[in-house]
Amino acid sequence: MTDVGTIRPPRNQWWDVWDQFKTHRGAVIGSIVFLLICAFCFIGPFLWEYSATYIDIRSRNQGPSWAHPFGTDQLGRDIFARMMKGGQVSLAVGIAAMVLSVFLGALIGVLAGYFRRLDGPLMRLTDLFLALPLLPLLLVMSMLFRQKLSAMFGVETGMFLMIVTAIAITSWMRTARVVRGDVLALKEREYVLAARSIGTPNRRLITRHILPNVLSPVMVSATLMIATAIITESALSFLGMGFPPDFPTWGRLVSDGIDYLQQYPSRAMLPGVFISLVVLSVNYIGDGLRDALDPRIRGR
């Protein structure tokens, strides 16, 4: 064992993480499914001949065929193309809202947990946001900002920004509370004291010792957040406060399909299945990542 030749220099920890991630079957399948869905949404439109907004009224309400694998809707638009286009928006909204919300939640949670003086004000702020109802808030937001954002970024980008912001600022509270609780416990651990005795300043104490150890709850809430964000976006579009009516998103496709649930059940179910698949695969990826990032579980 003392043979000098056996000593390996410390290698990047992310290789260990990757090695462990590969052994998590659910996470690997989840990543493959997620990547396939992303490819379907973002590469598919370049290969598919129909546009999502092309109306061919004579071939409306068709069933699945080689020309239209998912059939056509009541205006003769190709549902396959609409699924691809809608997926782009839904995935983008879900991921962007998740990133923003988890960032906000983790930031506020860490600040509140670590700095005692900020704890009271920040947690009262969290309570305040918890008490805010999403829909009236969105009504107000769209009334105040819709025109300005549309003028500044165009209708679609403007709405995208508004929806992402709205979802994020109404969903960061749970992450913040969980993170705060964990930070409160972690900052009393001896290794934090040890780091302080070395002379590590607060900012590096947080990034080096606190954040990596609150990763698990953050990861869990992040994966759940994507699902919530996609569903909230669909609720907003359904109420007419999201994207314009002819603009496809998965949520919009579900609500459009509900009118025809009796005659054509697949029209509402297909986007629903895609939403579920994304949520499930992201959950498994999060699960695998959480395990891979924890050295105590790694290597088992």
Binding site: E190, L193, I198, P212, N213, L293, D294
Partner: peptide, 18 residues
């Protein structure tokens, strides 16, 4: 700080598990 250091009681808790 470099001149003065500390060895802690609980070796389980004084090392960052990550």
């Amino acid at each position: 700080r470099p001149a003065m250091q500390m060895v802690f009681q609980d070796p389980q808790a004084s090392l960052n598990p990550r």
